[in-house]
Every structure is written in structure tokens, then in C-alpha cells.
Simulated assay, not measured.
Amino acid sequence: MTQHGYFHWNELMTRDTEKMKAFYAATVGWTFEGMDMGGGQTYWIARAGGEPVAGLFPMAGPDFEGVEEHWMPYLAVDGVDAVLEKAKGSGAEVLRAPFDVPGIGRIAILREPGGSKIGWMTPANPA
């Protein structure tokens, strides 16, 4: 399990997953495995040497209008709900309240006091 305060995951938010899969396969040798997100969407797990290293998230729909493509980092924290309360008390803004992703963990999205967006997550325990 990733330790509290360490970066746990990175996710490329993109409108063209096929283009970005081709780019990263050609440049750094990543391979990809798809995960059904429902609604006809596929989340892509990027692998290096067989190990998962990042994800490609398809930005589709009205929630992403006007949002530029970007990398989204996720910081591992112990007990995201409690740590998020500390973050709010220290000037962070919650952009998406904590939610659970089965088998992945509990995630919240926030804007730090300086304006940067970041995901904080309590990773799921390995089965």
C-alpha cells in the first residue's frame, strides 16, 4: 500500500485516448489494458514492464466543456474524509466530495489554497 503523503497515481485526462495511447506507446513503450467505466466509456491502465503506472481518463460530456487536457495526480492519505476536513480548515476548496471506486479506493478532488487541483485518495486494501 502506498504511504500517507506519497503520490499514488497519475491520470491523463484526455479527449482522444487512442491518440494518447499511440503517443505513449511509441515514446515510452507503455502498453494498455481497458477497464469498462459504463456508459460506453473505457478507462485505460498504462503499463510499463507489466506494472501499472498511470491511467487515461476519457473526458467526455458536458462536465468537461472548456476543460483543457491535463495530468491529474492523486496523493495517498490515511482516511481521506478526516484529512479533507484538515485541508478545508487550511484553505482548500472541495471540488468533488469523497466517493468510492470499488477495488481502487476512496477519492476526493480539491483545489489547494494556491489554486492547483489534486486528487487525494485512501487506496483500497489489497485483497
Rank of each mutant, 00 (worst) to 15 (best):
G61Y: 02
E85T: 12
R106M: 06
K19N: 06
P113V: 01
T31A: 05
A82H: 03
G91E: 03
G115Y: 07
N125Y: 12
G119R: 07
A92Y: 06
H8E: 11
W44Y: 14
P123H: 07
R106W: 07
H4R: 02
E51P: 06
E65W: 01
E85P: 05
D63T: 13
W9L: 08
S116E: 13
G66I: 05
Y74P: 04
G114E: 10
A76Q: 02
P98Y: 03
E65N: 15
E93L: 13
G91L: 09
A22D: 07
E33L: 09
T42Q: 14
A92Q: 04
Y24A: 04
G38I: 09
G119E: 08
V67E: 07
D63A: 15
G91N: 09
M37Y: 01
A22Q: 07
L56S: 04
W120R: 02
G66E: 03
L95V: 03
A108D: 04
G49Q: 07
E51N: 15
L56Q: 00
V77Q: 01
G79T: 03
E18A: 15
S116V: 12
M13F: 14
A76M: 05
W30F: 08
A22T: 10
G91D: 08
P73G: 10
A124Q: 11
T42R: 10
M59A: 05
L75C: 11
T31S: 15
M35C: 12
E85C: 09
G61M: 03
L12H: 01
H8K: 04
F7V: 02
D63G: 10
P98D: 00
N10V: 13
P126L: 08
A22M: 06
V94A: 02
V80A: 01
E68M: 13
A54L: 07
R106E: 03
Q3P: 01
P113F: 04
W9K: 06
M37L: 15
G89S: 07
T31C: 09
P123K: 07
Y74S: 12
V101A: 08
F32A: 03
E68W: 00
P73C: 11
K86N: 14
M20A: 02
G103S: 08
S90L: 15
T2Y: 12
V94M: 04
M59Q: 14
M121H: 08
A22N: 10
G114C: 09
P62L: 05
W120T: 10
K19E: 11
E69K: 08
M72F: 13
G114S: 15
E18I: 09
V80D: 01
T31W: 02
G79M: 00
G38W: 11
D100S: 11
G61P: 01
G49V: 02
S90W: 03
E65L: 10
N10C: 08
F32W: 04
G89Y: 00
N10W: 11
W9Y: 10
A87C: 11
P102N: 00
L75Y: 13
M1A: 14
Q3G: 09
E65P: 01
